Simulated assay, not measured.
Amino acid sequence: MANIQSLDPTASPLDYYGWELRRQREAHGLKQGQLGDIIFCTGSLIGQIETTKKVPTRDFSERVDAALGTDGLFSRLIGLVLRSQLPNWFQPYAEMEAKATYISTYQAQLVYGLLQTEEYAQAVLSVDRRAKVDGMVAARMERQRVLQRDQPPALWVILSEAALLLEIGGPGVMRRQLAHLLKFQEDPWVQIQVLPFSTGQHTGMMGTFTLLRFDDDPDLFYMDGYDQGHMTANPDVIKERSVGYARLQAAALSPEDSARLITRVMEERYAAPHSTDER
């Protein structure tokens, strides 16, 4: 990784963040350990972030701003830093997702990224990208901030029943992930439906896909693969997939029945163990 003496602040958002952190810290006459004491972390962590060996979090950035009086500088930078941790092919979608006013998605195997818990995301992303998993998890959590806006997008999620049964990270992780989904029952902007196996053939058999709608821009269709994403505003594709999604909504369980199924799976398949150790 980069040596702080040779760190190029123009190389990437992460490099600039590390360079600026060191510059601001030294301008305040603080050593790494001293700054760490102020913001309740180790000097080693400060050093790792300054040399791009560690990706900062939003919480870390806000504490640095408060400690150094940098007027929100690092809180503004962190969004760029975390977005840069997403795969290059996924970044265009993430940018459009953040601008959408209506998101409708069908998920064939996994919980949608905006609804994932941190530990669930960690388990999913660590399969292929262990070296970058911390930064990618932080980036996924950053994406979820769109749901916390004063005017969040309307989000409609259809999950295949497989997403409830595919055990990601172990029973405890799944139990907490399903419990997290249930918290959205009271959210007026989020609707979750489960498509049961008993549906048989359906219009989502092509795989996971998402439709994005905007106030002033054309609708977008998106689906991703292992190392690439496909996004189009082709009106014929939008029409076909919108009808397909409406048929999925009609075939899926109601939001109320979906919540009952999620609860049943959580309590029966991922019941809390009697001992303190989970398998």
Rank of each mutant, 00 (worst) to 15 (best):
residue 83 R to I: 11
residue 172 G to V: 06
residue 190 V to S: 00
residue 199 T to F: 04
residue 162 A to T: 13
residue 173 V to A: 02
residue 263 T to M: 13
residue 196 P to T: 06
residue 162 A to E: 09
residue 109 Q to N: 13
residue 204 G to P: 02
residue 96 M to N: 10
residue 174 M to N: 00
residue 265 V to E: 04
residue 160 S to Y: 04
residue 83 R to H: 14
residue 210 T to S: 08
residue 260 R to N: 13
residue 26 E to L: 12
residue 105 T to F: 04
residue 198 S to M: 10
residue 174 M to W: 00
residue 52 T to W: 04
residue 265 V to H: 02
residue 256 E to R: 12
residue 210 T to Q: 07
residue 121 A to T: 05
residue 227 D to Q: 15
residue 259 A to Y: 07
residue 65 D to L: 09
residue 234 N to M: 12
residue 203 T to L: 14
residue 266 M to T: 08
residue 114 L to P: 06
residue 94 A to D: 02
residue 199 T to L: 02
residue 25 R to I: 01
residue 252 A to N: 02
residue 146 V to E: 00
residue 93 Y to T: 01
residue 31 K to C: 10
residue 173 V to R: 03
residue 146 V to L: 10
residue 150 D to C: 09
residue 137 V to R: 07
residue 81 V to G: 06
residue 177 Q to K: 03
residue 63 R to E: 11
residue 128 D to Y: 14
residue 61 S to M: 08
residue 114 L to V: 05
residue 236 D to W: 10
residue 38 I to L: 14
residue 212 L to N: 03
residue 268 E to Q: 11
residue 37 D to P: 09
residue 2 A to P: 12
residue 204 G to I: 04
residue 217 D to C: 12
residue 253 L to A: 05
residue 80 L to R: 13
residue 58 R to P: 10
residue 56 P to L: 06
residue 160 S to L: 08
residue 163 A to P: 01
residue 29 G to A: 05
residue 165 L to Y: 10
residue 201 Q to C: 14
residue 219 D to W: 08
